[in-house]
Design a protein around this nucleic acid. Structure first.
Lengths: 347, 347
DNA sequence: GTCACGGATTTTGACGTTAATAAGATGCAG
DNA sequence: CTGCATCTTATTAACGTCAAAATCCGTGAC
């Protein structure tokens, strides 16, 4: 199986074994067409036999390219419900591995200056091939920094500055929220409120737009709306306000599961039943959404597709593919659970 | 600020700038004591001025050591409440960065054979310095593989085989569960049930032991116990059984937040109030625990300490530190919320 | 039979770093 | 003033890989 105990097998050893020069082995591995079929076969057999794997450090040194893709993790805020970044990281890593890349993690304290410094350091030190950004926003310093360095990158989150040159993959929050709104409207709700984020948030604005579109499509009023921080407590208070209104909401479409869970808490405090009395929807399909009683209707992001697409884009970029910047907008999937359905709460 | 636009700065350039040889620059950076103070100062100024960062690929090639630590991500199971691995990854990466390492992610489909293959490939290709394992279990193939290759590693999760040679960091599930049990006993509960995992799970067994110890310390009966899969549905059903008993439980101590959420669902179905009617506790302090109503009493794992300790251990290992394998058992912290307190549910 | 062509293979050198070793400078004892 | 130890700096070579250039060899044209 593994005839070599340790002592990494190198090109030269394979070459000796196959009775050719090191360069020919290199060619057999990287440019098969340059090598005569018979020789190639013999070499590949040797590679197999000896368990040769090219040394990436040497390759990186020689080629100035490491097949490393960098991604910066961020603290898992425990007051948020969403596992999105965890799932994203897994999906991204799986896609990277499939395409022959490795993911290297970057660490920086909060603040884009720190982050940019960390990127630059990593770049100098390791010749990473590309970066993946997440949670981009308007006037994102990271984008301009990476662009000014000429480093390939792709982002999970569209380029909000109308920057056509950036490859990105995003999930259509507007379409998702509209779908949620139309879903509750289809259950007969006419007073549909929206609890979202402040206007500074591009993502929040998109989701609010979706709710507006959903309401307008059915000629429903859109006076019940709140723009609050993404915390459970903020959602709870906003829900109370909308239920205290003279013409209270019978459905609340939220910009996140966290906010929706705040709504559920408010309903609980008022002795109202989610679904039966007030329909509630969230966004992100966090684990919590499936675990609360009744289950929370929410929007699921096709995160594995996002990962694959980003790697795909980076692959194109690195290959110098002419049809360069790709822009991919994916539809989230509405997951209907008890919180938006009338009748006895079901799971 | 950055006088060099791109074109990585190398040792030789710094050397030229400072009027010394490349080796002297290398020494100034890595072995300051070998260089005369005045020269050192001049060189470090040049390093600063030119923004020199050592190229890790070249270093890895030369030294056969990359300052890379590998960690395998696993799929984020969306039916689980816990963000533990997400938080862990962040903590580990932060600690690694602080100590001058980088985290490289490893991908493998489920199954320890795949995982071991992935480890071996990574090792051959990148000369990673060390591995971090998580969720170790009895007869863990990964441990024997890594040991047989002579690769340094440390694990989050103790070595269940009584293997003294492995460095590990773990959280004391037994002490945690005992604390939870004693906490509900202190609220006056006398019929305390336990919903945990099957005996194959070492972690589950530890937690069950903690409950047993807590009960025995107060001479309470221990007949109400269940060993089930870690799903919400299993927790729900187990709770129903224990509440259908002729002498039903008034408190349920669970091995995970997921199970505890199943219990909450069962209570909801029965019209019982968590805390007031039946005390419930979980384990892991998942985001969900803080977000449900009432909040779920649970045990918080000091995950940042785990990360730092693991990197510390690896650092020692790599330094060839003689006081080699470190074993660190940390206490989880009991977070008391409404689900285990009598009276009106509070948050 | 010579020569040009082209495919297959090898040689050479460089990527940036550092261990090992050599060389140079300084000081001090004899 | 010679010789030797000490401290500092420089030279050499190697880590494994691969692009570029050089070499080799067989084919076919003239």
């Amino acid at each position: 199986m593994a005839p070599v105990p340790h002592g990494h097998v190198t090109l030269v050893q394979v070459a000796r074994w196959a009775g050719v020069s090191a360069q020919t082995v290199s060619n057999a591995v990287n440019n098969p067409e340059r090598v005569a079929p018979a020789t190639r076969e013999r070499i590949l057999a040797a590679v197999e036999e000896l368990g040769y794997e090219p040394n990436l450090s040497a390759r990186a040194l020689r080629n100035r390219s490491s097949s490393l893709i960098a991604f910066k993790t961020r603290p898992a805020r425990t007051d948020k419900a969403s596992l999105l970044m965890d799932e994203f990281l897994y999906a991204l890593n799986a896609a990277a591995a499939e395409a022959g890349y490795h993911l290297i993690l970057c660490h920086a304290e909060d603040g884009s200056a720190n982050e940019i410094k960390a990127y630059r350091d990593l770049l100098k030190k390791t010749s990473v091939d590309a970066f993946v950004l997440a949670e981009t926003h308007r006037n994102d310093d990271r984008v301009s920094a990476l662009r000014s360095w000429g480093v390939p990158f792709a982002s999970f989150g569209r380029s909000w500055d109308g920057d056509e040159a950036t490859s990105w993959v995003d999930v259509d929050g507007r379409a998702g929220t509209r779908a949620a709104t139309e879903h509750v409207a289809a259950q007969g709700h006419r007073r549909i409120g929206h609890i979202g984020w402040p206007a500074e948030s591009e993502i929040g604005s998109e989701r609010r737009e979706g709710w507006l579109e959903g309401c307008r499509g059915r000629e429903l009023e859109t006076d019940l709306q709140a723009a609050v921080a993404d915390t459970l407590e903020a959602g709870r208070q906003a829900a109370h306000r909308m239920l205290d209104s003279s013409r209270p909401a019978t459905a609340l479409v939220c910009a996140s599961d966290t906010l929706a869970l705040g709504v559920l808490r408010a309903l609980h405090e008022r002795g109202l039943r989610p679904g039966a009395d007030v329909a509630v929807t969230g966004f992100d399909d966090s684990p919590t959404a499936a675990l609360v009683s009744p289950g929370l209707t929410t929007l699921h992001q096709p995160i594995d597709v996002v990962g694959r697409q980003l790697i795909q884009s980076i692959d194109n970029l690195l290959a110098g593919d002419p049809r360069d910047p790709q822009h991919v907008l994916l539809e989230p999937e509405l997951i209907v659970r008890g919180s938006s359905l009338p009748g006895p709460p079901r799971q």
